[in-house]
Simulated assay, not measured.
Amino acid sequence: MPTRGSPLMHGLIASPFLDDFLILRPGSVSGIKLPHRHWLELQRATLCPDWLVGAVRRRWPDLDLTGRPLAGTVLIRPQSPFGYGRASYELNLGCNYDCEHCYLGLKKFEGLSWPDRERLLDIMVEAGVLWLQLTGGEPLIDKLFPDVYAAAFERGMMLSISSNGSRLANPAVLDLLTTHRPYRLTISVYGATAESYDGLTRRRGSFAKFSRGLAAAHEAGLPLNLNLIVTEHNAHELDAMTALAERYELPHHVFSNMSPTIYGGAESLPAQSREYLRKRKPFTGCSAGHTFFHVDPHGMASICKVGRDPQIPLMDEGVKGLARLGGIADGLLLRQGGCTGCGLQSTCGTCMPLVTLYRKAKAPLSAYCQH
């Protein structure tokens, strides 16, 4: 698949991550933690040091660094004063499906130009982002997805993709992902039969595309996870969806709690299956806004995909704008409104930004408050 420029073919990434220093391998879930002195040594080395050769051989026996130059073998990322380790980037809000439960609401095929996307990736690197999730909409239908993916890989990011899998059988997509392996590829599953799956996505033929994509990605050995999406429409096929995941021997998670749209709309809520509504674990806080952030298709940064307001225009403010996210997060995560007097807050499983969306949607308390 053609991309802008030639991606750097590094085999390993040496990177700060929050307070640690790590050696990571694209496509691998394991890694090596470095002492600070070894991190400093890598800044000066020209050949792979003996301690690195040994540590890598123990972690990945198929990888021998003996006598190899450090440059071109290990991509060494700079330290960042901003303290972010993870981010998600919504390439666009467009999708080739029209799922009844979708939290995106109105799906628009809009996004940054290539120069701005490239600048956005540089801002993320400067912020310290090591793990980057590429999402949408459906990211694989974005015309600039190959360029974004290759450029992020070249910058030493560990990439994960959230997809409906409909484009994974495309040879060019498979070539890109097998040559530059992602850390994780998460595919949503909307049913176990064409009738159920196509009915939920409201696109005829979508189950066939998903099935081909899943089979192709599995055969290519890509690191797959499945999200089994349970709605009123397909709940009767949960056992069959689980069997599908087990047949491929893939890790899978069941998602049954639907949320309002990102605009606070209620149109996604009727799809929720009350039978499979799950009690959430107590919400005890998260790293949103402090070590993690989300970026929408227009380069607007927020604490997460749910708490999108207020936002920071990264194309205008650059990486320094992220310094305001921590304060925004602290404000958004405080219990507000009718929740402030609740004596059961410590066992509540719904974060405040999500509560705010439910309130905007005028959802009944039973949809988000377990008390």
Rank of each mutant, 00 (worst) to 15 (best):
P69M: 07
P69F: 01
L70V: 08
L70W: 02
A71F: 11
G72R: 02
G72F: 01
T73S: 13
T73M: 03
T73P: 12
V74H: 04
I76W: 02
R77V: 05
P78K: 11
Q79S: 14
S80V: 09
P81C: 05
P81Q: 11
F82D: 04
F82H: 14
F82E: 13
G83E: 08
G83L: 09
G83V: 06
G83F: 03
Y84S: 11
Y84P: 12
Y84Q: 07
G85V: 09
G85Q: 10
R86M: 13
R86V: 13
A87N: 09
A87H: 02
E90W: 00
E90R: 02
L91C: 02
N92R: 04
N92Y: 10
L93C: 11
G94I: 01
G94H: 09
G94M: 05
C95S: 05
C95H: 05
C95N: 10
N96H: 13
N96C: 08
N96K: 03
D98T: 14
D98R: 15
D98N: 14
C99W: 04
C102N: 07
Y103L: 14
L104A: 14
L104S: 14
G105K: 08
L106I: 15
L106K: 15
L106H: 13
K107H: 07
K108T: 15
F109A: 08
F109I: 06
E110M: 05
G111Q: 04
G111M: 03
W114M: 00
W114R: 00
W114P: 01
D116T: 09
D116M: 10
R117A: 00
R117D: 00
E118C: 04
R119Q: 06
L120F: 00
L120A: 00
I123F: 04
I123L: 07
M124A: 13
V125R: 11
V125E: 12
E126W: 03
A127W: 08
A127M: 08
A127G: 11
A127K: 07
G128P: 15
V129E: 09
W131A: 12
L134H: 04
T135D: 10
T135N: 12
T135H: 06
T135K: 09
G136F: 05
G137E: 06
G137V: 07
E138S: 05
E138L: 06
L140E: 12
I141E: 10
D142M: 00
K143C: 06
L144R: 03
L144T: 08
F145K: 00
V148A: 01
Y149G: 01
A150P: 04
F153D: 07
F153P: 04
E154C: 12
E154S: 14
R155L: 05
G156D: 05
G156Y: 01
M157L: 09
M157R: 04
